[in-house]
Design a protein around this nucleic acid. Structure first.
Lengths: 240, 240
DNA sequence: CGTGTACTTGAGTGGGCTCAAGCAGGGTGG
DNA sequence: CCACCCTGCTTGAGCCCACTCAAGTACACG
């Protein structure tokens, strides 16, 4: 576990325009003093691949706004079974589920290098309580997350649907924006998402590569990507 | 589809204490006029077993507060595969996910007889915009739903975990309160939740009955129940 | 150059699916 | 009241997809 977390304090608004402030930019009623006050307690972190933002069953004392990279939300069963319940990308907020809870129900773990702003829970609470339109924004965020989770339930995970189909659906969900660039998880991670073994994942990825609809490319700083044939993947994803 | 929905207008506050008002009771700042105004557009419904509160892909023009019975949120794939992504019980709000969306992503279908208050979306929006503490309550509700959905992902659905174990976990989740009374879904419904076939469900239920840890009992008005040996179920639920 | 991590590939097994036949209960109509 | 149907449940036999176990490869890093 080499988790060398670079760490520095938030310098000013410019740093946050891409993350926490995304949530407020819609709200015109946030004054400059509020912002400076708000920023005082916020830190800007770099997380190494595999680093833990926060761990399951630990006190929920902060939320994190993801500014770069991807984060997996992981659940560990006593039996050793590992399940990834959601993947956060740029602009998402990790730990939001714990706003009204004592402890985190899941671990948040960096996939590749991650940049994130840490917002201590007391600040977060104070801030949302005092800004009405921010609450609306957060409700929206929260419901988008719910929607996403239910979508996984219906389409990605489990059941009567063959692993091949679900793999294609997962790959489509993991692409960045509308490009053909797909965030590349390890075989074990994909297994934990789909609820299958990593051997099966490997066989499927091999098959897709053999068919020419998937290939390796590289991004910056340990974050790896696939390049995928979106049309072909969508076709496979529709197979019942 | 025999969906004879009894229907009558909401008479006053007393009717709503159990549902919509649950959300506000915490907020002291709601005036009486607000309430009367609010209630004007609300209707109180009875839904027969199998009746549809709202259907997937239809315009999201209302939310429903569940006052009695249980509601399943269902996703239909083009291929015909059916998946239940969540089950709502008394006090839950159906359609909340669509507060900021055009259309419902899932159908809400009554399991047994259901009583629910229909709140038109415009009313709902107007009301939450004007009452700050209600927004906080709703955020909490929304996050609880997210938590529940993720819990299903991690524990109930799919994967390396044997169907027997997941069935036990599902039964534990479906019990009412802390009693040993368990809401009884049809085999097909349980199959749609667990992502297995109804034949397998039948075999498992038979086995549990044979072991004496599950038996049929009856509730009122078409809503049926199991009585379960909670301790035994919890033991099975822990098997990895 | 050795070590660790991730991936690949094969052979054999098994849990859950498929297909199929039959049963139970509860309405409904003659 | 019974015959009929319809929905939901039961149970069996055979098969296949994905799991398990296992051996081996590719590559990064110190």
């Amino acid at each position: 576990m080499t988790k060398t977390n670079h760490h520095r304090s938030c310098q000013g608004r410019s740093n946050c325009n891409a993350c926490a402030l995304r949530l407020e930019m819609v709200c015109g009623d946030v004054s400059l003093e509020d912002l400076i006050d708000f920023h005082a307690g916020i830190d800007d972190f770099d997380f190494a691949p595999g680093a833990t933002l926060f761990a399951m069953d630990t006190p929920a004392d902060a939320v994190y706004c993801i500014r770069g990279g991807a984060v997996k939300m992981v659940h560990y069963e006593p039996s050793g079974v590992v399940r990834i319940v959601r993947v956060l990308k740029i602009g998402d907020v990790a730990g939001l589920e714990a706003t009204f809870r004592e402890r985190h129900e899941y671990s948040a773990i960096a996939v590749g290098t991650v940049r994130a702003c840490r917002i201590p829970m007391p600040y977060f609470h104070k801030f949302i309580e005092s800004h009405g339109s921010l609450q609306m924004r957060l409700m929206e965020t929260s419901q988008a997350a719910l929607s996403e989770a239910q979508n996984w339930l219906a389409q990605i995970v489990g059941g009567n649907i063959p692993a091949r189909t679900r793999m294609a659906r997962l790959l489509l969900k993991l692409r960045t924006g509308n490009s053909d660039r797909i965030i590349r998880f390890t075989g074990e991670d994909m297994a934990a998402i789909l609820g299958i073994t990593f051997e099966t994942v490997s066989r499927l990825v091999s098959e897709f590569k053999r068919l020419g609809i998937l290939q390796y490319i590289y991004g910056s700083k340990n974050t790896k990507y696939f390049r995928g044939d979106i049309a072909a993947l969508e076709k496979i994803a529709q197979e019942g």
